[in-house]
Design a protein around this nucleic acid. Structure first.
Lengths: 179, 179
DNA sequence: GCACCGAGTTCGTTCACCGAACCGACGGGT
DNA sequence: ACCCGTCGGTTCGGTGAACGAACTCGGTGC
């Protein structure tokens, strides 16, 4: 529970980047956070959408809760079921995901535009830093609308992938009645 | 060179974030890129500053060159010595490092300000997105001056860490006459 | 009672990371 | 000529993490 034991620490590095990577730098972790922004909240939905091993997913979710990035909360009592939602600290990761996605789309060869992000208030597509070029304000993730792009597979195998085909507001939970 | 048998690929994920993570998501990779922004260019300097295993460092440098993030170039013939410098594609990672560092400083508990980044033209400290609040422009990394903060260790063990104590412009190579 | 579901845990294999040792090309000192 | 040191790696044995399949457990619906 304290610092060590895991090989995930960058030892004596004194750098806020290294400290950030100790929290969100392990394999799968940032994709879990991404899915949380997309509205995924349940263990099984993360599982089918990510394709990660079950044990790894369980470990990442627990680590993110302990790091204060996700909050685990009961959403029904019988049977007892928990969901994982982003805390303020998790929401603060939006610029990281935004800049990573922008780089991946612009700089990794063979990339096609898979998703577009728009300012929900005015419909304008976000700039590279997650700001609205029209309104000249940084757009918080709650005000972002995600729309599918041309490169997106029209018929994903998993139900979560299908649910994410439609335009949707970030952070809004998936509707399980429609899955 | 194609998809590979390595476990570093996020399989069927269609997401520019996942594609970016396939390039810079492995352990140590992003810290190598960070050091490249700080002016580190030689194998041995990366090695002593990062503390990574030699084999891992060699693999990461090679992978980054193949991905077009770093360029390997000869800087002397006898003995033949190469240095690794950021390409345009690597320079485009600046917003990623900037947002990660900002998050690590603001949101990871127990963090103290270790380094500050200023707009070299006017001296103003950069905003959270790497923009200059005074000039209202996004600041390219070449125009960023890095200054040590209060949380920085005054006497690091390695010579590279000592060289990075002084205020310096990003991307400028370390001066090996002073190491 | 029984099948089913969500949310994990357990387990054996595979793979990547680690750190120490080793290697080869070159330069400098004696 | 010989030894020493540096730089930039490669090799190797041990360890820990990731993987995927199987299993468990609580609870519900039929």
């Amino acid at each position: 529970m304290n610092s060590m034991a895991l090989g995930k620490d960058y030892a004596h590095q004194q750098c806020s980047i290294a400290r950030a990577l100790e929290v969100i730098g392990e394999r799968w972790t940032l994709l879990v956070v991404r899915d949380a922004f997309y509205g995924v909240r349940r263990y099984n939905d993360f599982l089918v959408h990510l394709g990660a091993p079950r044990a790894v997913l369980a470990a990442r979710l627990q680590a993110l809760v302990e790091a204060g990035v996700l909050d685990r909360r009961r959403y029904q009592e019988s049977p007892p079921r928990d969901e994982y939602v982003l805390t303020d600290r998790g929401l603060a990761l939006w610029p990281v995901l935004r800049s990573l996605g922008a780089w991946g789309r612009a700089e990794v060869p063979g990339a096609v535009a898979v998703r577009h992000f728009h300012h929900a208030d005015c419909g304008t597509e976000l700039g590279p830093y997650g700001e609205c070029p029209a309104c000249r304000v940084p757009v918080p993730p709650a005000d972002v609308e995600m729309r599918p792009g041309d490169g997106l597979d029209r018929d994903p195998a998993d139900p979560v992938g299908r649910a994410l085909l439609a335009p949707r507001r970030l952070l809004v939970a998936l509707d399980h009645a429609k899955l």
